[in-house]
Design a protein around this nucleic acid. Structure first.
Lengths: 150, 150
DNA sequence: AGCTAACATTTAGTCTAGCTAACTAAATAT
DNA sequence: ATATTTAGTTAGCTAGACTAAATGTTAGCT
């Protein structure tokens, strides 16, 4: 290692080390939780789309395509599948008759939050076994991570 | 909310809240980093398989299938594709001539660690902009998360 | 030798997801 | 009124991932 790196243009080796450990921790965490919950039966693209819809309340096909970084026909098909499964409904916008507003059904919301609840539950059980100091370390880190712009 | 929940069989609402925020943070983090690095050109299953191979050093097709929770033919194809791209090689096991041992090539390792390096680099840049106290909060959290059994 | 189990591949078929191009319908501009 | 733009769908294509079933090979018994 070549002396101390204090250039502001490049992260210090210590920062890189922290980044690496956070990265590993996030990967490990989500992998374990995913294994713990395969019960939604939805593919990743569908789950992601549903998540955006639920979060947005209601959203047009085009906006959803932009959010998911895919083309409109792809979303059109995704939404059709979600609709077939009774997870979303669509209605024409009253202001602009061209746009289709997609909304989650109660069942769609249940599927999403149910899966989330199971994953979070597994994680919470593990966190619950930690000493108080470590729990609050996690809490502080979550605050920092959620505020980061990236 | 019905009074304080102090049963040790179920995490406290506070713990669940921390779990929820860590979960969200991890999802958000990896999503952003994945978008920031699409340069490997590998699909998720291939990347995952390559990762297991690199981590294991060498591994049989069947064991890889079990690790990835798919059937043998699926892995057989995945490995064939990775082999075509020069990322892995396979050799028959000397002890058991039925098994194909898959090993990563130098290029395979480079692809994997290169992608990781880019993602970690993007994260490190963001962390570098944080005040010292927040950086060490992340460091402590990483330590805790990596030690957790889950 | 002969039988059975295990490892991997091939075959044949399904499903998902992504794309472009061409279309319909509605809104907006000229 | 005519033309253009915008939103979405449909059709047709490619690529990838998955499966079950059949097959070839090798190992290990008895």
């Amino acid at each position: 290692m070549a002396r101390t790196d204090t250039r502001q243009s490049r992260p210090s080796t210590e920062t890189v080390r922290v980044a690496d450990r956070i990265h590993s921790a996030a990967i490990r965490l989500l992998r374990h939780l995913r294994v713990a919950d395969t019960t939604t039966g939805l593919s990743a693209p569908r789950l992601s789309a549903l998540s955006v819809v639920v979060h947005a309340g209601q959203i047009a096909i085009g906006a959803l395509a932009r959010a998911e970084q895919v083309r409109a026909p792809t979303v059109s098909r995704l939404v059709k599948a979600l609709e077939r499964d009774g997870l979303v409904t669509r209605t024409r916008s009253p202001e602009d008759e061209r746009v289709q507003l997609v909304r989650a059904t109660a069942r769609g919301r249940r599927v999403l939050v149910g899966g989330r609840r199971r994953r979070v539950g597994a994680l919470a059980a593990a966190i619950d076994a930690l000493p108080r100091a470590e729990r609050s370390a996690l809490s502080r880190a979550a605050t920092v991570l959620l505020r980061m712009d990236l």
